[in-house]
Structure formats: C-alpha cells, structure tokens
Design a protein around this nucleic acid. Sequence first.
DNA 1: GTAGATGCAAAAGATTTGCAGCCTA
DNA 2: TAGGCTGCAAATCTTTTGCATCTAC
Lengths: 148, 148
Amino acid sequence: MGLDNFTEKKFKDYLKLKGLRYTKQRKEILEKILNRMGHFEIEDIVLEFKNQNIDVSRSTVYRTLNILKELGIVNEVIKFKNKTLYEVALNEHHDHLVCENCGKIIEFHSQEIEDLQNKICEMYNFKPNFHRLEIYGLCKECKNLNEG
Amino acid sequence: MGLDNFTEKKFKDYLKLKGLRYTKQRKEILEKILNRMGHFEIEDIVLEFKNQNIDVSRSTVYRTLNILKELGIVNEVIKFKNKTLYEVALNEHHDHLVCENCGKIIEFHSQEIEDLQNKICEMYNFKPNFHRLEIYGLCKECKNLNEG
DNA sequence: GTAGATGCAAAAGATTTGCAGCCTA
DNA sequence: TAGGCTGCAAATCTTTTGCATCTAC
C-alpha cells in the first residue's frame, strides 16, 4: 500500500482546515503507519525512525498521532498492561480477542454487535463516536496447553 | 453493603491458596472498595485513606488491587485519557458509554451482546475470561449543547 | 515575515520495585 | 521463626509540555 494519494489528501485537507502545516515529519509518520499492517505502538515507530536515521522525534510522533486520531485515520484500539496499541482505521471496523497468555490479537467483525450497540446508544440518546470491544482470554493454542 | 462475609471469605481463601497473608491493610482495602458504589481510581482510595488517617500506602493499594483483579473481585473497566477506572465485579456484568465531553459514564447491560460475544469466541475457539466494551461519544446533554 | 512545528530536556502521571524493618501464620 | 508484607523512596514507563530554534506558507 504505502502513502496512497487518497489518505494523504485527506490528511492535508484536514491540516489546512485547521490552519496546520503539512511538514516533512508529518509526511514521514503518515507514510510509516500506512506501511504497517496490523497494530503498532508509538515506541515501534520511534525506534524505526531512529534505526533508519530519519529525523522525527518522539514528541512529534506523539503530537502527530494525536492529530491522526482526531482525524480518524488511526484508532487507539487496545489498552493492555499500560500499553496503548494503535491501528490504521482505513479498513472495516473490527474488534479484538486478546490472548492473555501469548499476547496474540485476533480481529473479528460482527455486524450484529454493531447494530445492537447503535440500538443501545439510541436508547440512551447517546451519540457514539467510536467504540472499543476487547475480549480477553485464552486463544486456541494456549487453551490447549493449559488443558493439556 | 460493607465487608460482607462471603467476599471476605473468598479473598481469604484465595490468599491462603496462594500462600499469601490476610493483613490489616488488605482488609482495609477490601472494605473500602466494597463500600464504594460505581467506579473508582486508585488515587481516590489512596486519598481517602490519607484523609481518614488510615495507614495504607499507595504501593500497598496498587499491590492489593492487582491481587483483587486476579481474583476477579475488581475489574479494570475503563482506560481513558491515561486513567484507569476500576469497579467491583460482584454485580451483574455491564458495559459503558463514556461521554468524551463531560466524562460521564453510563452503564448498560445487553444480554444479546453478551450472547453474541460468546458465539464469536466459540467460532474462534477462544476461551473468554472477561471483556470490556466502551462506547465513546456524546451524552444527551453534551450532544444538545453541541447542536444548540 | 509569522504562526505554527520541531527537538530537546524537563515535567507530569501512573505504576512498579528494591530494601530494611515489620508482622502474620 | 520465617517468609511474606509494608512503607518509603527511587526507578520505570508513557505521555505531555516549555522553550528556543526552525520552517512552511
């Protein structure tokens, strides 16, 4: 995939709208997260830049991720053991099964759950923005080990 | 409610099982969280002890909460803006609507969602332990303010 | 030219840990 | 009595922020 024009434009437009600037660093960060499959932590990004001798500081990564979150290009998906995992939000929304033993993360999507959630929000006159459903437990492999 | 014998016994038994001790501090902490309705932060607990001149240190609160979490007497329910909220897990399980504007938390329970989750876990051969469903958005009041 | 961005180092919070002394079983 | 527990202070880890400098527009 890489830096597709569509997402880059979305980002640029949003920045302009807010009176912000499209800098070299912001472009680097957008590029990097679009190249990533699956989940990532801020620290991953910071280290990759360091290893590749690309000059983007930790603070800038944090600041930019906050903008991308606002924009909905990334989601903060999981909070587990004081770690925050992000993911690119361009694909269909999904939720997560998290294995407490091996840390594996399995994605799933259930339209029925989404619909029920919307129904509940209506009941409470609540305007949903995003949601996070995490089911913690043991994955197939770890379950078998435990029962073994 | 207060320190009911049932929960105290559960805690004591678990401690014994693990070769741990039932100390004055652990009893104080259990008592305090059982007396609380709704959600709490570690810091709340620490401050209350301080105000009441009860000698239980912050580290002990953290250490004990970790044990109570393992035991399932408390759940870590919400991670929001770098804050962790806990709740006593003795009542029926429920999920949360979190207002991003005023911070209000609305609890709800949907058996249908629970059932669907179980169905999904079966599909993936995943053994669920607990889950967390948080829907972020605007509550009725804040929504009206925004639209007003 | 100027408002906004960056990098750095420091600060702020949350949580954990090492250690010496204390207490429960 | 001994191994676990506590309080304290220090350490860790994540995230934010103040500031001087730089840069996109």
